[in-house]
Write a protein that binds this DNA or RNA. Structure first.
Lengths: 268, 268
DNA sequence: AAACTGAGTTCCACAATATGGAACCATATG
DNA sequence: CATATGGTTCCATATTGTGGAACTCAGTTT
């Protein structure tokens, strides 16, 4: 993750702050940063001014700012598959009764953009925006299997290959072999590679041209079901993934004029 | 919103892109931008590289990128009141059966960070991250009423004073007068100032020191209830707002080490 | 009380970086 | 085929970011 000039550096700082999963003090950031004191300081200032970070004067801590939430709303609406996929996910979740995920790839990691939890009512951000490893999850592997060679190389270099379970594919060789197989058969499986007891089947969402957009998956637990049972859903998942891909291709945003106060919220 | 150097400009570009509520082409952005062609181009490049924007090669359009979603997840968790307020909002929503909002102020606008919809099941981002006007909503006025003079001045300058309804307080004078009253009585009302038929009562969330953190509100419609009925909830809203304020003050994040893969997501 | 410590903030000469006019290229359009 | 339009690249220039060092302001220690 090396620099696009100032912008790249600023983004690094944002990530730094976000990486602490709690508000951080200047000093703490300084320790974990490559920037000299004054430089880091100025970045924090500017980012805080811009609302990309928030500063708590009482505690003297920095945290990711609310402006990000506002921007993310736009991102989620516009450049994620979620709005398109929603009805399909609903249907899939209803039919299967299992947990359904919609994920996209972001800097080599799986970013969950939507989810249906079979049982409990949804909780907002607690699901969208979360990240996970790509090399040991169904959606992650499904997506990587359909990357262009150069993108794949980059993605591979970003994997940690930490051995979560003894079934984890903990090396590039093992992973690549699986990716080839996945590409051939059209879907990926996660057989307790990330968490013991958790299994999953996933299909990539592709454009007609073969460009990879994301992936969807159905997750189950070994306690409640066999792998074979889960695999029986694959054709259904395939179909839904294809539908989403097709929709995404033809999808056009309704015409709007620039400064869109256009999408308003009822309430006050 | 003038510049903190390069960072400020980059943020402006992000906002520009987000302001179109749809993917935009280079040329469209150029029209609405102050930057010369080459400069804007380089910004878009860098931001796209960084994942702050996403670029659709098929359509040649830019949109806010997924990295924002990831960062926003952190922002929402860390610097919004939502995690703290959640149980209180749940309770309030259950008791009243009405729509409940939690909002914070972001560059002079109301940013909704959480919501309870009495009737329907929640939909994630479709609620959090949305923005609204501050001068004509309950939460907006409740928050502005408790700003420091200089912050208030800034916020006032950012209001559009568009006349949504004939009850809208469409001038600074009217608004300021109301803010004084709100500060005295401790809560704000929105009597169809934003949308016809929509009424609301709101209380600010304050620290013990009086620092304004956000606001909560209960919204109703004139069809189903009278203003008096709604106002009967004020003491309850007040109490909840105070509780959230107190919590926020004492809240400490659990100790974590920097690079937090700490909050993981079950699933794959 | 004076000296110390360390976090946070400001300064400023220097150098790296962003700038933007103009030229260029590729794809639609008349 | 010519022309316009939208998008991309170049490069000399100067604006901007850089970071070492000096400073300020608590909170401690001697």
């Amino acid at each position: 993750m090396a620099g696009d000039g100032t912008i790249g550096k600023a983004c690094d700082v944002l990530d730094q702050v976000a990486a602490f999963a709690r508000p951080v003090r200047f000093g703490e950031l300084l320790e974990h940063s490559d920037f000299p004191k004054a430089t880091l300081y100025r970045f924090l200032q500017s980012l805080t001014n811009q609302g990309m970070l928030s500063y708590d004067p009482d505690r003297q801590t920095y945290a990711p700012g609310l402006r990000l939430v506002r921007l993310a709303h736009a991102a989620w609406t516009q450049s994620s598959l979620a709005p398109i996929a929603r009805p399909f996910l609903d249907a899939l979740s209803r039919e299967t009764g299992e947990t359904v995920h919609l994920a996209q790839l972001d800097s080599g990691q799986v970013l969950y953009v939507d989810k249906r939890n079979a049982t409990q009512p949804v909780e907002m951000f607690s699901q969208a925006g979360k990240v996970g490893p790509a090399y040991c999850t169904g959606v992650g592997k499904a997506m990587m299997a359909h990357l262009e060679p150069d993108q794949l190389a980059k993605a591979l270099s970003q994997q940690s290959f930490y051995r979560f379970t003894d079934k984890t594919l903990a090396s590039e060789q093992l992973l690549v072999a699986d990716l080839v197989a996945i590409r051939e058969r059209g879907y990926a499986v996660d057989d307790e590679e990330h968490e013991p007891g958790i299994i999953c089947v996933a299909c990539p969402v592709l454009t007609e041209g073969g460009r990879m957009l994301g992936a969807i998956s159905i997750t189950g637990s070994t306690e409640r079901m066999s792998f074979a049972q889960l695999q029986a859903w694959v054709p259904r998942v395939r179909r839904v993934a294809d539908q989403i891909g097709a929709e995404a291709q033809s999808w056009r945003f309704p015409e709007t004029r620039p400064n869109g106060n256009s999408d308003r919220m009822q309430g006050t």
